[in-house]
């Protein structure tokens, strides 16, 4: 009977015995033939009514509700938000690099401005006594990494007799920030050449 438009009453009985009276469940290849017979056969309609009665009883069976706790547990099995998974799967170096990429640029820019200001100040003070000039000067620039982290980076410019070194303090965990730590010689005659701006080629 498959695929034909004709179905006998006996075939229709077998068909209903398997698939019931819900036409949405009927196999598409047999549904047209079954529907045709149903329209024109009183006997088929009686069979249909009996099958529908059993279907109605099956529908009476309650469907249990899905628990929230199960859904939560299953949700936790799958991928999580990228923000969370990134922290869980990347190295400390990668994470800190990301931090710097997002947050340190303004801080470094600030440090550069401060450095320029210091340079200008030193240049201005160039006429002071040698004792004053030889005294170490320290400029500390503190930039918060984020509002969620108390970690700070301190860029300290320490002027010694012949050199000026800026170093970034450690961030813990052996992490070496991807700072191009600069150490440049500042000649004693800087007041003539002016303050040499540091190269902040961070990335």
């Amino acid at each position: 009977m498959a695929g034909t438009n004709d179905m006998t009453v006996d075939e229709f009985r077998d068909f209903l015995n398997s698939w019931g009276a819900n036409q949405d469940l009927w196999p598409v290849e047999n549904a047209p033939a079954a529907a045709n017979l149903l329209v024109r056969s009183v006997e088929a309609q009686a069979l249909f009514k009996a099958a529908a009665a059993l279907d109605a009883l099956l529908e009476a069976v309650p469907q249990p509700e899905l628990s929230d706790s199960l859904r939560n547990r299953v949700m936790a099995l799958g991928p999580q938000d990228r923000k969370v998974s990134t922290i869980g799967t990347t190295s400390l170096t990668e994470r800190m690099t990301a931090f710097f990429g997002a947050l340190m640029r303004p801080a470094i820019a600030g440090a550069a401005v401060a450095g320029i200001a210091v340079g200008i100040g030193i240049s201005t003070l160039g006429g002071l006594s040698g004792l004053e000039r030889e005294a170490p000067q320290t400029v500390a620039v503190t930039a918060p990494i984020s509002t969620a982290s108390p970690t700070t980076v301190t860029a300290e410019a320490s002027e010694t007799e012949n050199s000026q070194t800026l170093f970034a303090d450690s961030l813990g965990g052996g992490y070496t920030p991807n700072l191009a730590v600069f150490s440049e010689t500042v000649s004693d005659d800087r007041q003539d050449s002016g303050f040499q701006q540091a190269n902040f080629a961070l990335y």
């Binding site: 899905l66 199960l70 859904r71 299953v74 949700m75 799958g78 991928p79 938000d81 990228r82 998974s85």
Partner: peptide, 23 residues
């Protein structure tokens, strides 16, 4: 999308199929 770690796609699949499987 789940294979690409998209949690939203996982949520849709869970909501689509978890109920029937559990039932």
């Amino acid at each position: 999308r789940v294979a690409r770690d998209e949690s939203a796609a996982w949520a849709v699949l869970v909501d689509r199929h978890l109920g029937p499987v559990t039932r």
